[in-house]
């Protein structure tokens, strides 16, 4: 891909993202939005964040897929439990990464 094509994409996505971020504040002001739109938008964060997280855990590592070699599966489950119970970024990050490294070490992938 040419440098021009990449810069164009960055600028287009950047402008589009700004408009998405600006739209609610500007268009709604202090008013309310149509029911169908509110109802649709209500489920966007849960659906999008889950669609990012699940494949990143299952297919993101060096041993993708549902196999015992994929240490991200178990580390991800542990991290999900920590996230659910603590809602803490620090705890989830710390325990999640530590679990991954411990499992990798156990599997003989780390020195």
């Amino acid at each position: 891909m040419s440098a021009f094509a990449i810069w164009s994409m960055i600028v287009i996505i950047g402008l589009g993202t700004f408009l998405l971020r600006f739209s609610g504040l500007q268009l709604l002001g202090q008013g309310s939005m149509p029911d169908w739109l509110a109802r649709t938008l209500r489920y966007v964060p849960a659906a999008v964040i889950a669609a990012i997280v699940v494949p990143a855990i299952v297919h993101g590592g060096p041993a993708p897929g549902f196999s015992l070699d994929n240490t991200r599966l178990l580390a991800g489950l542990i991290a999900a439990a920590v996230a659910w119970s603590t809602r803490s970024v620090l705890a989830t990050l710390g325990i999640g990464m530590a679990s991954l490294w411990a499992l990798e070490w156990f599997a003989g992938n780390l020195p």
Partner: peptide
């Protein structure tokens, strides 16, 4: 595997 930070951060936001 510091890329694992992405799903971890987003798990907390989920």
């Amino acid at each position: 595997q510091i890329g694992f930070a992405l799903p971890l951060v987003f798990l907390v936001l989920l």
